[in-house]
Amino acid sequence: MSRPPTLTPPPAARAYPLRTARGDFAVVDHPVAPGVEPRGAALLLPGFTGSKEDFRLLHEPLAARGYRTVAVDGRGQYESDGPQDDESAYAQPELAKDVLAQAAALGTPLHLFGHSLGGQIARAAVLLDADTTPVSPTEVPFRSLTLLSSGPAQISQPQQERVKLLRDALAVMSMAEVWDAIESMGAPEDVGGPAVGTGGQEHLRHRWLRNKPAQLIATGRQLCTEPDRVGELAAVALPVHVLSGASDDTWPLPLLDEMAVRLHARRTVVADSDHSPNVDRPLPTAEAIADFWDTIQAPPARRKQPAP
């Protein structure tokens, strides 16, 4: 869980419900900085127990590089509504369809960016799109894919055990009671996370209580059972960036290094950061993101590469 210092959007950003064919999703939409030539737009997907606010410190430096950024709460996350108890609504294919609907509503080819669980949902959306017949050969929703601290398959065994504890607790405890337990042991995926901001824990508790339990249970199960789909992603003609902190107990760095090789992807490690470099060290993280996006001149044609 990323721990943003505040849930308040940056001054230039606009928070609103993005209306899509699959319902409304809460977003924070930050425009390109005044006087800067626009270079593209991006859709940012948060991780497990996170929210769109996890990217709060990335918006302004990316705007200064010419990028509009739209961070979204997924179905059942924080300010996006979803069923309280129906876990089927949060199956990964459903969440992938949500991402494609969000991209369609924004109406421009996007750089897709996913943190942790959000990276695996982003991957599923790319693969779902690749299996869909396009209206025209060049009509594509995504210009690139960046996976931030998001690995090839299921999370590490110690993290699986922590997520299972959370899922078991959600089955018998209220969200408030579970929050108290999280505070006593540290949240799943909170790998040596950043210090809490001056606002203390209350804003994080407020965010937690807005999550839907079924969403947490279903996506927690996904993290513990996700298959390796790197080969499928490697067959899609889309530029990929594998980005992470310098240490990570959720997906150890050797796994991320190997995944980048298998994907022929750009690989960046942000020094002095852990599972959430977007919060730990936002400026070098934003610089690495924009440096990658700057290399992409035009949306790729939507197609799968021929098998070797």
Rank of each mutant, 00 (worst) to 15 (best):
P4F: 08
P5F: 00
T6Q: 14
A21N: 12
R22P: 08
G23E: 09
V27P: 01
V28M: 01
V28C: 03
A42W: 00
P46M: 13
P46Q: 12
H59Y: 08
A63P: 09
Y67S: 08
A71R: 15
V72E: 13
G74E: 05
E79H: 09
E79M: 10
A89C: 02
V99Q: 08
Q102K: 10
G107V: 14
H115W: 09
A125W: 13
L128Y: 03
P137R: 01
T146S: 13
L148K: 04
S150R: 02
S156K: 09
P158C: 09
S174I: 10
M175F: 11
A176T: 15
M185P: 15
G186F: 04
T198A: 03
T198L: 03
L204S: 15
R210G: 13
A214E: 10
A214R: 12
Q215Y: 10
L216N: 07
T219P: 06
G220T: 06
Q222Y: 08
D228K: 02
D228M: 06
R229H: 02
G231N: 06
G231L: 06
V236Y: 02
V236G: 01
P239T: 15
G245V: 15
D248I: 13
P252C: 03
H264G: 05
V269S: 06
V269H: 00
D272L: 14
S273C: 02
D274G: 15
N278T: 07
P282V: 11
L283I: 14
T285V: 14
A286P: 06
A290S: 12
I296D: 11
P299K: 04
P299I: 06
P300R: 00
A301Y: 10
A301S: 07
R302F: 04
A307Q: 10
